[in-house]
Design a protein around this nucleic acid. Structure first.
Lengths: 240, 240
DNA sequence: ACAGACATTTTATTAGATGAAACGGAAGAG
DNA sequence: CTCTTCCGTTTCATCTAATAAAATGTCTGT
């Protein structure tokens, strides 16, 4: 009753928990992140706003199927089944595996974080990521999604190449074949995003290099563009 | 009613579908595999034994949260969220990333499939795998689980090192520091499994090399043991 | 021995899951 | 072109199975 009618002004319930057992279970899974890879019942119940007993039942089922596993201390963390599903996912989008080496090489040569994003409805999803030596806590993790409306170099570029309704700004981005952002999503960062095409010229997504704004002037970012082109060409992709 | 009382002797319902919405949803996810990465509503309903409407509702929720995505043709396949959870899983079991290079090297040097398994309750789970040039359809995929009771070199070795109740056979395996199987799970294959320890000597799981029995006599399999030791040592693991 | 923090079980109540049937739309055959 | 078939989707009366508050169990530290 506390969900539909009552109000729980307790700490962590910014959003009301979803209704429906399956949705609640998936919601619980979504509470795990790189920053919080292990959570105990109490935390999950509080974060989700669900009753302890309800949370426990869901966690048990999730653990029974390997989506979660219990640590020796009794906390929960994502389990091995996710690996299985991730490898099936990778197999269905056949180009991800092919992109891993180029992204790694790009990251190494730029000594910055390199990523690959695709559009999924109104979000962008990070599918490949290599961190070089940077502190990665400010970034979206692999598989993570961000609303396109939140901006960023990758978002602008994805919109330019995939949005049905066109305008001058988007045409200009396509004309240039890249987009540079400065502090658009995070004040301290700058990025360049370039489009990635399959060998048959079909658009796949955006390759980006991101780093601290102080380290990267526009000239340097622009210089990365040719290098990205070289590296992805080794895997038969193109950037134009 | 068809689930609890009725009988559906149709094609693919070897097991009755689980009850509980969450469990049913997870069950649906488990129907995807490397061999069947895309399934449509009809297939999923039939394979699971669930009603079409029930299946549809679950699939919609799963897709809404990114666990599944729809192909242009309307079929379902595992979605990008699995990638996110897999990377969190990898981060929590920090040794997986460290093992990937050694497994790859072992596979290359033996020119056979190399894998790493851990025990999870009464199952073994494949966490790392490199295929060399073999046809991989006969093998468990990464993240895949198999009952320990089904045997195989890895299963025997995991039992020897993790089962609380000991017996002579298990003590002998620990004494030898390896286990060789021939046709135990599959008539045509042979494997050697060796234990993997963290640098502090805590047991992690089993490294195996598997190939066609005709190509691998016991002497050859035994010869791999030292090589495995060398390669994992490069990542500060040990095999004894 | 007591208190506090968590995990787990129990149970009466009803929200919400279920599935048979009907509908709709697309593709193919005659 | 109409008829048929095959799927996905919607609807709705029925009742299973999910819910949450409270009680109980299990630690840990004082």
């Amino acid at each position: 009753m506390s969900i539909s009618t009552g109000k729980k002004p307790s700490a962590g319930d910014r959003h009301a928990p979803p209704s429906g057992v399956l949705e609640r279970g998936l919601f619980l899974m979504s509470l795990f992140s790189m920053e919080r890879p292990r959570l105990q019942l109490r935390d999950l119940a509080q974060l989700s706003g669900l009753d302890k007993a309800t949370t426990l039942r869901a966690l048990r089922t999730l653990a029974k199927w390997g989506y979660l596993e219990r640590t020796p201390e009794g906390a929960y963390s994502p389990g091995p089944v996710n690996l299985r599903l991730a490898s099936i996912f990778k197999a269905t989008s056949n180009f991800i595996a092919r992109l891993e080496a180029p992204i790694s090489a790009i990251s190494g040569r730029a000594n910055q974080t390199a990523s690959f994003f695709v559009r999924s409805r109104d979000d962008r999803v990070c599918l490949v990521r290599d961190h070089a030596f940077q502190d990665f806590r400010y970034f979206i993790e692999v598989g993570g999604t961000v609303k396109l409306s939140e901006g960023g170099a990758a978002a602008q570029l994805l919109l330019a190449y995939t949005e049905p309704e066109d305008d001058d700004a988007r045409a200009a981005i396509r004309q240039a074949g890249h987009y540079i952002s400065r502090g658009e999503r995070n004040r301290h960062f700058a990025s360049i995003a370039v489009p990635l095409f399959e060998s048959d010229r079909s658009f796949l997504g955006a390759v980006t290099i991101t780093g601290m704004a102080v380290d990267l002037d526009d000239e340097m970012l622009l210089g990365f563009k040719a290098m990205i082109g070289e590296e992805v060409a080794a895997a038969s992709f193109t950037t134009a």
